[in-house]
Design a protein around this nucleic acid. Sequence first.
DNA 1: GTCCATGTTCTTTA
DNA 2: CTAAAGAACATGGA
Length: 268
Amino acid sequence: MPELPEVQTVVDTLSPRLLGRTVTAVRLHRTDIVSPPGLDVAAYLKERRIDQVSRRGKRIVFTLDDRNRFYIHLGMTGQLTAEPADRELRPHTHLILTLDTGQTLRFRDPRRFGGLFWLGRDNPGDEDMGPEPLDMSPIQLAERLGRTTRNIKNTLMDQRVIAGLGNIYVDESLFEAGIHPLARADRLKVDRVDRLCREIKKVLRRAIKARGSTLRDYVDGNGQLGTAQTLHRVYARDGIPCVTCSTPIRRIVLGGRSTHFCPTCQRR
DNA sequence: GTCCATGTTCTTTA
DNA sequence: CTAAAGAACATGGA
């Protein structure tokens, strides 16, 4: 589920519980969530202090006191939560870190599209990722979009172009900007790119304020549900009248993903 | 049984 | 090389 707003909310809720805490025990119930395969995470994490928890795109990046770093990706159904050690384990909990506070950090992910990815000390590990949408300038966005003839929907989904957007917030941003999902990325006029850049930020900020969208699985670091799904204007609303013009929202498939838009407000 | 799902990556085809 | 389409990964809900 998780896109930038959900991942940011997880980081914000976990940070106060994790920063400065030491990992006292590691339980890895499924080794296939770890990359590179076979890495002895317990050996690397035990007795290490967590110095930083941050977000890059959809990644939750941890920095340890020995300067080693790794990230958790939530995939489609991942949850990363802080819970008391004595709380019962839910099914599909693959990794449990016990902290010196008596709390545990738990990663569960039924579909296992997510996982733990080791970065090591030196390489930033994000050289093939696009800029952070909340920081990018319209010029930066225009430059990136100008390099591809693909449609704007699939281009914005590409993490190498911009890091952090996914299916929900691409559809919502395109609606707010009045851009048809099939418009060619490199043929958007300057004023349309400016508008798109602003609307992406607006959509993301609003969603962060609402603590992310819970469609099914998403919870924040405290296990709480998000409310941003109530703000959606097109996502998963096919057949429902558009909030601005009452035309039924349409659903098409692009790049194998459901794409929702208003045929009246988003003209080709 | 069917279809669909907030993600990523690889393969095939053009 | 580019891009589009499809499949794959694994699980569960409607």
